[in-house]
């Protein structure tokens, strides 16, 4: 056969963007390194922990419902998603750690009811994903958004299949000892940076920032918000007290509804024994002129 012609054609003929399937193992493992190293050929590329959103399970939707309606809700529409995100924050406040950061994977079903004089209650069947180890599990949950007059945080009850049983004790203990032994206290900023980069050493502090942010987001959530942590602007380790590692965090939270980026300062403690606690939280004023200077690329 004429190999040269084939190569020339291989180089010249192309179909960018055409579908390809990555999980069928079409290339023999040993020979494909040159191509599979390219992110295009293996979407789940590089660092498996970074894949947050795909697990093959997919919703089919298209059913209509009114916003803020009671009764059965479309699981993929925002009213259900907002309530489910509150459950996610709740689980983080209960079970979070630098190696246990819960994300919302999927809302299976949701319905809402008016509860006389106390607010609106959502009943949810959801899947959550542990984002550092990429495991998912199902949870049943109830979220009560208090009626507007009494501005309290949403109340959440949740039970999960096997609540986040992945054993992270050894990792946590190692990290804890490492941070305790630090001669110079840790600090970091812009996790991830403007270009999505995050130093592997800093990932536990990013996760911890995410978990700590969930304390704020749980407290601040209403039926009219959808919060997400956008970035850890700054983190500084403080002197350890009573065996608790302590950190000052400055986090940026993004509210989808208002599109605002809000700044919070948090005093966070963590130890494997006591878990994550947020001792102080303070919203920083929106400040047009005190923006973080650009980081040289």
């Amino acid at each position: 056969m004429n190999l040269t012609i084939l190569i020339v054609m291989a180089v010249l003929t192309g179909v960018l963007g055409s579908p390809y399937v990555t999980d069928t193992d079409v290339t023999p493992g040993s020979d494909s390194a040159g191509m599979s190293a390219h992110p295009n050929s293996v979407p789940e590329a590089a660092d498996g922990t970074e894949v947050f959103h795909e697990e093959g399970v997919v919703e089919e939707e298209g059913v209509e419902e009114d916003v803020m309606a009671t009764g059965e809700l479309n699981p993929s529409h925002y009213p259900a998603q907002r309530a489910a995100n509150v459950v996610k924050h709740y689980l983080n406040t209960r079970y979070g750690s630098p190696y246990r950061w819960v994300g919302l994977h999927k809302v299976h079903s949701a319905n809402a009811e008016e509860v006389a004089e106390s607010g609106r209650k959502y009943h949810l069947e959801i899947s959550v994903q542990e984002m550092t180890g990429n495991t998912t599990e199902k949870c049943s949950a109830e979220v009560l958004f208090p009626a507007l007059e009494n501005q309290r945080s949403p109340q959440v009850q949740a039970s999960c299949e096997a609540l986040l049983t992945a054993n992270t004790t050894a990792q946590e203990e190692a990290l804890y000892q490492q941070y305790r032994r630090n001669h110079t206290l840790l600090s970091g900023h812009n996790l991830p940076d403007s270009y999505g980069h995050i130093d592997p050493d800093m990932k536990p502090l990013w996760h911890l920032g995410g978990v700590a942010s969930s304390f704020v987001m749980l407290k601040e959530s209403t039926e009219n918000t959808l919060y997400n942590m956008a970035q850890v602007a700054n983190v500084t380790q403080l002197e350890t007290e009573n065996d608790q590692l302590r950190f000052n965090y400055h986090v940026l939270l993004h509210d989808m509804v208002s599109q605002e980026i809000i700044h919070w300062k948090l005093l966070v403690t963590w130890s494997p024994a006591e878990g994550v606690k947020v001792l102080q939280m303070e919203e920083l004023p929106k400040c047009e002129h005190c923006e973080v200077p650009p980081k040289p690329n």
Binding site: P39, G103, M131, D193
Partner: peptide, 23 residues
């Protein structure tokens, strides 16, 4: 993505993000 990186989507995700939008 769906919020993990949000606006700070790493460049390693660009090709898949763009290919799926392209289709």
């Amino acid at each position: 993505d769906r919020g993990r990186y949000g606006f700070l989507l790493p460049p390693s995700h660009i090709s898949k993000a763009c290919n799926e939008a392209l289709i």
